[in-house]
Amino acid sequence: MITGEQKPIDEIREMIAPYKRILVLGCASCVAECAAGGEKETAMLASTLRIAAKMKGEDVLIEEKTLDRQCVRDFVILLDDIIEKYDAVLSLGCGAGVQAVAEMFTEVPIIPAINTEFLGETRDQGYWLESCLGCGDCMLHHFGGICPVARCSKQLFNGPCGGAMDGRCEINPDVECAWHLIVDRLTKFGALDRLENIYPPKDWSKKQGGGPRKIVREDQQK
């Protein structure tokens, strides 16, 4: 899933400062999963902003709504009936959500309230870990199911760099050395010899083909 974190309230307040009628718009998908922009967080942010506005004696209207998904136009269109009430939308969607709303409702500014972060897994309650860069060319099968692209700080493909110590990355002892994990895993199922081959340079064009990547599936289309 896509993860994100709410921006500092000051930054949000500054962004919405010019507007008087604001819709705080949550998204019940990925960002709800990482407790950043779901219905609950949306209600909390809206209430916080109302309190802040009251404290400053500002006369603003701040209301909240949460869409099932902000990145799908069929959900975004549901705002059509209410959008005219507002002069700005503060979106807790991920970057994709913010843009989908912005593309549909060109008449109002759509302001991001969260910083979209990464594709990750929920490691534990309240702990999300980046595990995929969306490179478009998965090669986890070579690496024992651990991605060196997402999880090695240097994105190395041919083994740990000289900075690995005790299974930890040189950049920070909190970070596990992805290559250490890969070596461990492959050792466990006796496939370490795989790593003796030199892994060729990666085809990054699937990640950065130039401009936004697209997936078009004719079988899915109308």
Binding site: I9, D10, M44
Partner: peptide, 8 residues
């Protein structure tokens, strides 16, 4: 933390 961030 939230209320502190808005100066309460």
């Amino acid at each position: 933390t939230i209320i502190a961030s808005i100066g309460l």
